[in-house]
Design a protein around this nucleic acid. Sequence first.
DNA 1: TATTGTTATACTCTATAACTATA
DNA 2: TATAGTTATAGAGTATAACAATA
Lengths: 181, 181
Amino acid sequence: MSATQRPGMETSDALDSDLGWTLGVVFRAYVRTVNALVSHLPGGPRGYQVLTAAAQELPGGQGALAQRLGVDKTVMTYLLDDLEQAGLVERRPDPADRRNKRIVATERGRATWAETQTRLEHAEEHVLAPLDPADRSVFRELLRKLAVHANALDPVHDTCRLVTELAPDTAPVKPRRSPRH
Amino acid sequence: MSATQRPGMETSDALDSDLGWTLGVVFRAYVRTVNALVSHLPGGPRGYQVLTAAAQELPGGQGALAQRLGVDKTVMTYLLDDLEQAGLVERRPDPADRRNKRIVATERGRATWAETQTRLEHAEEHVLAPLDPADRSVFRELLRKLAVHANALDPVHDTCRLVTELAPDTAPVKPRRSPRH
DNA sequence: TATTGTTATACTCTATAACTATA
DNA sequence: TATAGTTATAGAGTATAACAATA
């Protein structure tokens, strides 16, 4: 999609002001790159995250791991099934509480993780390649400031407040959905 | 999730170097905000994009519109069903070729679009609020540079090249999927 | 015959609920 | 009874294929 084709922002006069679009383009480019770099792992990016945790032998069972990654515990079961079948991780019953299962990486899993991690470090530089070194530092620092702030806010609460502030007199259109299937 | 809890990056020593994480945090914060601001529209963000196109009476039928937005034409059918039912847009057969349907906003649709657009402009500033005005300009400019570069590249081709360059001797683990259901 | 849009169907991903084995 | 993990099932979203109307 070219800059003149992008939808939704035709009324803004400058590309500069089109934060959402540029942010989306850069983020998606990064995600595409990362996805390609971890596509050899079962479960893709999330498989990599699980493998990371396994390689570092984090405390806690697979439920804790699921919570950490923000996925459902049932999804974690499927992810681990695939990773275990690929010989990258193992499920070991915790001797202290045999309901828990510790997730540990196999030898092969650790090697795969280390190699993948190296690739991902290069990917960051690849995305930032258009900027000279000084600008990269500046960009990282500004982005970090924004991230810290975004993280500090309660997302739901804050956006609600924002809506109220910006559109106090709006009678929302009822978002009715047509039933499908 | 706090900075010390984030998965996958425990080996990087500084938050600065964690581009993917910070980029994701900021992008998701923006997306959350936007979603909240357009949640009153059927179809959410994509409903807004359709409404934008309709308000500007872009040339072409709904197939062209679907392509423009990067969604399937069948999805466009459902989106338009909902928007039409809400009284925001109309489908008008093109007199020149009655297979085509022109999508035009109703009076109410145009008013809703204008109001929503105003909200979204405020949302940009909300995300950038942690930066002082000078830094905002710098950030927008650097992000624009990255976006232009990311856009100029053929995504698939380039990531393939990247994989080859970074990991020429890798024997990929077969990403076998277990059948579910 | 080719094309626009619709409808019906299938597939993927994710979430909910029921089940087991431990505690 | 309560909890960790698994399995079965259902839902939302999306894509594929067959269809009707028009060219």
